[in-house]
Structure formats: C-alpha cells, structure tokens
C-alpha cells in the first residue's frame, strides 16, 4: 500500500518536473527557432516549430548591420576589467581586515558590508553625477569603476570566510623566512584562496555581462560604449519589423553565458547562490 502510493507520487512529480522544464526551456528554444526564421514563418505559417527554411542570414545581419561585434567587445572588456579591479581590491582589503592587527578593522569590515543593503536602483542618480564630475562619462571607466564598486561588498564577504580559515602559521613562516608582508600576501595567501577567487570571478563577470540598470543611464545614449544588454534593446524603439535579426542578436548575447553555465554548471550555481551560503 505504502509502496504504491509512493509510486503514484513519483509519477505525479515527474510529470510536474517535465511540465515546468517545458515552461522554462521552450521560450528559449522558441527564441532560437525564430532567430532562424523569416517574418512570414514567425507570424503566419510556422510560429511554433523548427524553421522550415533556415535563415542564417539573420545572424549575418545581426553581426554586420546591428553592431553586435562592438557590443560584444564592450561587454567583454568592461566585464574583464571590472572583474580584475574587484578581485584585486577585495583581496587586498579582506586581507587587511581579516589577518592584520589594527584598531578599526572591524569597523572597516562592517562599513564595507553595508554595501549589501544598498540597492543599485536607489543610487543610480548620484552614480551618474559622480561619474560625470570625475570626467569619466564617455569612457569605459564610466562602467568599470561603478561595477567594481558595487560588487566589492559581495566579494569581500566571500573572501572573508576563506581568509579566516587559513592558519596563522602561514605568515609566521613567511616572516621567519624574511619575506615582506607583501610577498607573504601575494605568494602564500592569494594562491590559498583561489577557490574563492574563482567564485568571485564567475559571479562578478556574469553580473557585469548582464547588467542593465547602470549601463542604461551611463552609456545608454552612446553608440560606441553600449554593452550587449543595451545592444539587444537596439530594436525596441523602432517598431521592429525584423524579428529574425532581433532573435539572432539575442542568441549571440546569450550564448556565452549559457555555454559557461553548461560547462561549469556546479561552479556557476555555487557562485550565483553563494550570497546565501557565505559562512561569514
């Protein structure tokens, strides 16, 4: 009796799981399909299934006519620079507040943690003002510096737990060997926290690659600096008639993130959800 009830339950849950997999994936498949269709197929003859006539020209259009390579390059550059800056600053800062001895180290750490409570929506107006006053508007720096700044709190949180787990003897040994604190940091400590570094790199890169709110107000009006999330919206204003190329652009914008996720699923899931699992 008990066994049969479990069997029925399992079938029910399987059905639910499959149904939601469809709800989760079919919109993406549909996007892939229509990125390879003509408008006639999308709108009239074949809205749901595989393309009847594969229109690879949509991808050529997206690539050549709609500046996708430029957006791609901007996203890559901004993402990579912001990741480097965030990781460098967060490693140095966390080292000083977790392992060095000074009076205000707890206060400094708490101050940095406050960043977790500040929604980026709320500060977008002053951020634009600051970027403008620093003369950064119209440069890559207008995105790189704010991106690094808003990710610092998270990065230091992740590193903090790791730094605390390292035994004190590490620095003692380095000190006795006559290595400076800088050498000890760079050659002993940094390699030890590389799992945390990987987590931060994945998280910050994806966050920057997909960032919209700040990019919209900082470079939204600048054709040369737009990142992919803004490039995708290129079609929005003009009552798009070219759905195929729009789909192709969205596919190109999404593929890198999807590939990274498919290859490193576990790491990406861990990096994205670590906010809830950081052990302080």
């Amino acid at each position: 009796m008990k066994k049969r009830r479990r069997g029925a339950g399992a079938v029910f849950f399987s059905a639910l799981l499959w149904l939601y997999a469809l709800i989760s994936l079919y919109p993406l498949l549909w996007m892939f399909f229509y990125s390879l269709k003509s408008n006639e197929e999308i709108f009239v003859t074949n809205p749901f299934g595989l393309p009847l006539k594969w229109q690879w020209g949509n991808y050529v259009n997206a690539w050549l006519k709609y500046d996708v390579p430029l957006y791609f390059q901007n996203s890559l550059l901004v993402g990579a620079a912001a990741v480097l800056l965030t990781v460098a600053c967060a490693l140095l800062f966390t080292y000083a507040v977790s392992r060095m001895r000074w009076r205000l180290r707890k206060a400094a750490r708490t101050l940095m943690a406050l960043g977790m409570f500040i929604p980026v929506q709320a500060i977008m107006i002053p951020v634009v003002q600051t970027v403008n006053r620093l003369g950064l508007l119209g440069t890559y720096g207008s995105l790189i510096l704010p991106y690094a700044a808003i990710n610092l709190s998270f990065a230091t949180m992740v590193f903090f737990g790791f730094f605390q787990g390292i035994p004190k003897e590490m620095e003692e040994a380095a000190c006795i060997d006559g290595a400076s604190i800088y050498r000890a940091f760079w050659h002993v400590i940094v390699p030890l926290v590389s799992p945390a570094t990987i987590t931060v790199v994945i998280y910050v890169f994806l966050a920057c690659w997909n960032e919209f709110i700040l990019a919209n107000v900082l470079v939204g009006g600048m054709a040369k600096l737009k990142t992919l999330p803004l490039g995708v919206l290129f079609f929005q204003g003009q009552f798009t008639t070219d759905w195929g190329s729009m789909g192709a652009t969205m596919m190109i914008a999404s593929l890198p993130a999807i590939l990274v996720y498919v290859i490193f699923s576990e790491q990406v899931e861990r990096a994205m959800t670590v906010g809830a699992a950081v052990k302080g």
Binding site: L85, A88, C89, A90, L92, F93, Y95, A96, V97, R99, M100, R101, W102, A108, L111, M112, L114, G115, I118, A122, I123, P126, V127, T130, L134, L145, P146, A148, A149, I150, L152, S153, T156, E171, C175, I181, Y182, F185
Partner: peptide, 28 residues
C-alpha cells in the same frame, strides 16, 4: 609588528575603500 605594519595596512585598504566611498557610500 609584521601584521600591524601601518604602511601595508593603508596600502591594502585604500583602493577598495576609495572606490567604495566614492561610488557607493557618497551616493547613498
């Protein structure tokens, strides 16, 4: 003394604190 080297401490915390103060704290 090794772990409370004031020059090192300032060098280590300055980049992050500056970036954070300029873009996040001053903004809020």
């Amino acid at each position: 003394r090794y772990l409370s080297n004031p020059v090192a401490i300032v060098l280590f915390i300055a980049p992050a604190l500056t970036l954070f103060a300029v873009f996040v704290l001053s903004s809020i």
